[in-house]
């Protein structure tokens, strides 16, 4: 049934997708900006990493970081052009950007065009994924719990009030976007070196949408929500594979059901931390004692 090899594959896939989801969690969940182009940042990261390793013989980790940086650079340009504009320009720009990157890659024969780019070195291991995930979560947590994170949340809550208390809203949207694209880029780099090939259609609009769905499903403004959401929504369809044709239906039903039952997402803006667990536990113990005392 569930062989270790199979399970390991699912864990790695979820671990890799966790990175763009975390990035998007910062951007959408904590800063309030919606992006439908994060698959595009993944693509840039993936192809940059592959290019660095295959053509320039750059080692694995630096190559992945370069992928992240290059994605971040693109996001910076998009941000410069659209983050000062009112309304939904940013969202539409990311959507257009994601599709443009995919079409561009479809036509760059140097990278294999639409047929894809096979034969990439299989460098991504379970340990690498787990270590990078842990670092990624810790860094994001540190940002969110600092004044910089508070500024992002303020922008999400009430932009006008933010600027009136001295927050450079443009700057904080930009920082959030660039970090988020960096995460997506690194995720793309890991994905290519895990699958052993890259193909533009992996990074479709559907993929971008899926990332946003995971963030909303987990709960906007909750990192633990994003983690749990990723594990459930990436792993679930794989585990449901034995249902063959029915699996996507079941998947859809589960997502819809949870969104109806908990419209604020699984975690609803709350974090699951050791503190929370400890407090819950203490409360239980106290209650139990009180009961016993009666």
């Amino acid at each position: 049934m569930l062989s270790w090899y199979y399970l390991k594959g699912i864990i790695m896939l979820a671990g890799i997708y966790l990175l763009p989801v975390l990035g998007l969690s910062l951007l959408t969940g904590f800063t309030g900006l919606f992006s439908f182009g994060h698959a595009g940042f993944m693509a840039i990261g993936g192809y940059t990493t592959a290019f660095m390793m295959m053509k320039l013989e750059v080692p694995f980790i630096p190559a992945i970081l370069m992928g992240g940086l290059f994605a971040a650079f693109f996001s910076f340009i998009i941000g410069k052009l659209t983050l000062k504009l009112k309304g939904d320009y940013f969202c539409i720009a990311t959507l257009g950007f994601g599709e443009a990157i995919r079409l561009l890659l479809d036509n760059i024969q140097y990278f294999g065009g639409a047929r894809g780019w096979p034969g990439l070195p299989l460098k991504t291991t379970l340990i690498t994924v787990i270590i990078i995930d842990i670092i990624a979560v810790i860094l994001l947590r540190n940002i969110i719990r600092s004044r910089h994170g508070r500024n992002m949340i303020a922008v999400r809550e009430e932009e006008l009030a933010s600027s009136i208390i001295g927050i450079d809203t443009f700057k904080y949207k930009m920082i959030s976007l660039v970090i988020s694209a960096f995460y997506a880029g690194v995720g793309g780099g890991l994905l290519g070196t895990y699958l052993g090939f890259l193909q533009p259609k992996i990074f479709s609009l559907t993929r971008s949408t899926e990332l946003t769905i995971i963030v909303i499903f987990g709960g906007l403004g909750s990192l633990t929500g994003s983690v749990v959401g990723t594990i459930l929504l990436i792993a679930l369809p794989e585990i449901l594979r034995s249902f063959a044709n029915w699996r996507l239906v079941v998947y859809g039903v589960i997502v819809v059901f949870i969104m109806i039952a908990r419209p604020e997402g699984l975690m609803g803006g709350k974090e699951l931390s050791f503190d929370v667990l400890r407090n819950l536990f203490r409360k239980r113990v106290k209650e139990a004692k009180a009961e016993g005392g009666k």
Partner: peptide, 20 residues
């Protein structure tokens, strides 16, 4: 707390390193 920024200068990088 969000509005309390007066005289706070630590960078994003410092927050990332020293947070945990």
């Amino acid at each position: 707390l969000t509005a309390c920024q007066y005289n706070a200068n630590y960078s994003l990088f410092e927050a990332m390193v020293f947070g945990l």
